[in-house]
Computed example of a mutant assay.
Amino acid sequence: MKAFDLQRMAFDKVPPEFLGEVALRSLYTFVLVFLFLKITGRRGVRQMSLFEVLIILTLGSAAGDVAFYDDVPMIPVFVVFVTLALLYRMVMWLMSKSERLEDLLEGKPVVIVEEGQLAWESVHRANMTEFEFFMELRLNSVEQLGQIRLAIMETNGQISIYFYENDEVKPGLCILPDGCIERYVTVPDTDEYACIRCSLVTRLQAGEKQLCPRCKNPAWTKVSRAKRIT
């Protein structure tokens, strides 16, 4: 085999005329996926549950094969589409009848911030890290966790946030990127500090070096008292 053979790299063993068939197959699979999205009635991927994403990935795998491989017939992919559409409708109906099945397939909302601090136990049970949603909070103009009364990770991955009034904002962990906050293992001043991992707020004395009693993390940062700008 000749290396860097442009003919082999571009077409391999298929004739150039097959490109027209690829275009037709791609249009066919696009229409199938589009119809499925219309059936689900969702406007975007962020609104999809885990079950719906799994259905789309399964359909996408079948659609990808029929789009590129000349030995994959098109009718079986249509059968896959019909089967998945019927499965989706049936499962949606079953979930409307069974809360347990709905929890199994869709998951449950997870409380991630409660009264200005990370709901550390809930986050751990959900096998998440704090960095997975700090960015989402920043996109909602959150500077520090003490601004938040309650934040919930919904089953579609979006975060619902309920804020304190400005006169009720608590001292909390600043969630700006690392370059914007100072971290200490030995704290320089007597003040309130927040654990950079679990957000526990405690008062430490100057020169004190202490592990967080909740998560055993050694690093702290001074609490932020920033109010929300509305």
Rank of each mutant, 00 (worst) to 15 (best):
N140D: 11
S141E: 13
V142H: 11
V142K: 03
E143F: 03
L145F: 08
L145C: 09
G146A: 00
Q147Y: 00
Q147P: 00
Q147A: 04
Q147M: 10
R149S: 11
R149F: 08
A151M: 06
A151D: 09
A151T: 06
A151P: 04
M153V: 04
M153N: 06
E154P: 03
E154Q: 15
T155L: 02
T155N: 07
G157C: 09
G157L: 10
Q158L: 07
Q158A: 00
Q158M: 04
S160L: 12
I161N: 08
I161R: 01
I161C: 04
Y162H: 10
Y162V: 08
F163Y: 15
Y164L: 09
E165S: 05
V169L: 00
K170T: 06
K170L: 15
P171F: 04
P171H: 10
G172A: 03
G172H: 07
G172N: 01
L176V: 03
L176E: 09
P177L: 01
P177F: 06
P177W: 06
D178R: 03
G179R: 10
G179Y: 14
C180Q: 14
I181F: 03
E182S: 15
E182H: 06
R183V: 08
V185H: 05
P188N: 04
P188C: 01
D189F: 12
D189Y: 14
D189S: 11
D189W: 09
T190D: 06
T190V: 08
D191I: 01
D191S: 14
E192W: 13
A194H: 04
C195R: 09
C195M: 13
C195V: 10
I196D: 07
I196W: 08
C198N: 02
S199E: 10
S199G: 07
S199P: 04
S199Q: 05
L200A: 13
V201S: 10
V201D: 11
T202P: 05
T202C: 12
T202R: 12
R203T: 15
R203F: 11
L204Q: 12
L204I: 00
L204M: 15
Q205K: 13
Q205S: 13
Q205T: 15
Q205R: 13
A206S: 12
G207S: 08
G207W: 09
E208K: 11
E208L: 10
K209E: 12
K209R: 09
Q210H: 11
L211R: 12
C212V: 12
C212A: 13
P213C: 15
P213E: 13
P213G: 13
P213W: 12
P213A: 11
R214A: 14
R214P: 10
C215V: 14
K216C: 10
K216Q: 15
K216P: 02
N217T: 14
N217R: 04
N217Q: 14
N217D: 15
P218L: 15
P218A: 11
P218S: 08
A219N: 03
A219F: 14
W220S: 09
W220F: 10
W220G: 05
T221L: 11
T221S: 15
T221H: 06
T221V: 12
